[in-house]
Design a protein around this nucleic acid. Structure first.
Length: 524
DNA sequence: CGGGGAGCAT
DNA sequence: ATGCTCC
């Protein structure tokens, strides 16, 4: 499909490890090396913190958040009593009989708080990437560069820990990370003072290292990784599964090759690795083992899909399926209505109990949402639910012969292919022809959710709603531009030394498509 | 063994 | 378009 040019991997590796990158901002001092400064911000026991805010009486008590039979997370009081993440409720209560349990299966509050955090961070710097509900990456390179110009190096110091150092003087070499550590502290302070949440931060030259180093001092602390400590950080990992990007399946495959430790993977033959994983993945995971990661911080914008699911011991009759599905559809349709966008695709996913593949293995079927039904969803009409239920049952029959006995353990419903109102195709021009509610037209009764704009600081001549409906990468482009107040539209050039990943190429294509449109958002 | 959401391979 | 893999 998308074959990377040979040899650019070697380029990347020397680039990362020798710090000779020349692309990017060309305006800095000659001695300064243009490396990225990446923050990873990781909220402490996120669900537990949200519940302690909702009910402050829980603050001093051992608290566990329960989903089904699991403690998915717990506060630090509970941890002192030996309770841990992903412990069974039985084990946890055994360890700590006074443990207070709060059900955390409804994610609404967590989702809302999660987006508030992302939103807050975006108000400082648009390059924010979410990872799950409780982690955010930021690329603060430009912010660092700007501050460095106004700051004397002798006035700088690191905020928080520096990995494997008691203290560290700031010099020309590490000044950018030092500024990053100051920014990280400001972000954590902002999150705490406006939302009441604590968290950790990691500061490093790429996402992988920022995430890894963030976990070295917990909770509510931050750590900076200097480039020359990279090898030490990587070899401190106790197994390959600890490398973000290497999950269960990959670990098992590597184990079959005799690779268990990070060092094993670093030293293994790339050619052999390619045979097992293919070119792209082989290079990626071996680079990860070396602490090398050139993946960009990619703002996600509003979610591309909304889904709702429930799991259970057993469902084995059509009636039960209908009832559960209807419940899921009802809440999902409400969420969809608040979002304001219109879904064009519907997907039903199930998990069947089988003796062998008992844990995972989901199966799904999807179909277009009929025009009238889509409209009813966005309008919040309750008629949409029975219509969707009809679709669901059709899809269900495609997956399962319901004349045979069945045993489901999970149902999931999902709206995707979300488009900004109007039934016309995804034509970007439709952003300008459609009628949009403006801020003043919104009734106070309408929930102001994440995507409702107050967090986008758009110029006065731009309709914030229209802006909020633009594709995420276009939003990013514009935000970056407005912040810099300097009309430079970034178009990926051949001279860029970054590898052209699939994603880069996609967004490049999209970006150039949008160029004509973007000019409508610019002053003049 | 929870409840999402995203990217990639096929 | 669907499954796999990741967090």
């Amino acid at each position: 499909m998308d074959t990377d040019e040979e040899g650019d991997n070697d380029w990347d590796r020397s680039l990362e490890s020798d710090m000779l990158e020349t692309e990017g901002s060309s305006t800095d001092r000659v001695t300064s090396i243009s490396q990225r400064v990446i923050l990873h911000i990781d909220l402490d026991c996120f669900y537990a913190q949200v519940e302690m805010i909702r009910n402050p009486a829980l603050r001093n008590k051992p608290l566990g958040i329960q989903q089904k039979y699991l403690i998915v997370t717990c506060n630090y009081v509970a941890r002192e009593h030996g309770v841990n993440k992903l412990m069974s409720v039985t084990d946890a209560v055994e360890k700590c009989p006074q443990l207070v349990l709060v059900k955390g299966e409804d994610l609404t509050h967590y989702r809302e708080m999660s987006y508030k955090v992302t939103e807050l961070l975006m108000s400082y710097c648009p390059l924010v990437e979410r990872l799950g509900f409780d982690e955010n990456f930021m690329d603060v390179t430009e912010m660092v560069e700007r501050r460095l110009k106004e700051t004397c190096i002798s006035d700088l110091s690191f905020n928080g820990h520096v990995y494997k150092h008691e203290s560290m003087a700031v010099d020309e070499e590490n000044a950018r990370l030092a500024v990053g550590s100051v920014i990280a502290a400001e972000m954590r302070q902002a999150i705490f003072s406006t939302l009441g949440l604590t968290g950790c931060a990691g500061i490093a030259n790429n996402k992988l290292l920022a995430k890894l180093v963030a976990g070295t001092f917990k909770p509510n602390q931050q750590t900076t990784l200097l480039p020359y400590s990279t090898a030490e950080l990587m070899s401190s990992l106790t197994g390959l599964i600890k490398v973000p990007g290497i999950g269960y399946k990959t670990r098992e495959k590597l184990k079959a090759l005799g690779l268990v430790s990070v060092r094993d993977l670093q030293l293994y033959s790339l050619a052999d690795l390619v045979r097992e994983f293919g070119e792209v993945t082989a290079k990626r995971i071996q680079n990860l083992a070396c602490g090398i990661d050139d993946s960009p911080v990619t703002p996600a914008g509003p979610p591309q899909s909304l889904s709702d699911e429930d799991s259970f011991k057993k469902i084995s009759t059509l009636e039960e399926v209908q009832k559960k599905t209807e419940e899921l559809l009802t809440s999902l349709t409400e969420r969809m209505h608040k979002d304001g966008r219109r879904p064009h695709t519907f997907r039903l996913t199930i998990r069947q109990y089988t003796v062998t593949n008992r844990w995972f293995s989901r199966e799904s079927r999807q179909c277009p949402i009929p025009n009238h039904t889509g409209l009813k969803i966005t309008c919040g009409s309750s008629e949409a639910v029975p219509q969707l239920l009809g679709l669901s049952m059709k899809l269900f029959h495609k997956m399962l012969d319901t004349r045979e006995p069945f045993h489901l353990t999970l149902l999931n419903v999902c709206f995707s292919n979300l488009q900004a109102k109007s039934s016309s195709k995804s034509s970007i021009a439709s952003f300008f022809t459609q009628k949009c509610p403006t801020t003043t037209q919104m009734t106070s009764q309408q929930q102001v959710s994440m995507y409702d704009f107050p967090y986008f600081n758009v110029p006065a001549n731009v309709d914030p709603y229209v802006f909020s409906q633009l594709p995420a990468d276009v939003q990013r482009e514009l935000l970056t531009e407005w912040r810099q107040q300097k009309p430079v539209l970034k178009i990926p050039s051949k001279h860029s030394h970054k590898t052209s990943s699939t994603r880069d190429k996609k967004s490049a294509a999209k970006g150039s498509q949008c160029n004509n449109i973007l000019k409508y958002f610019k002053p003049n």
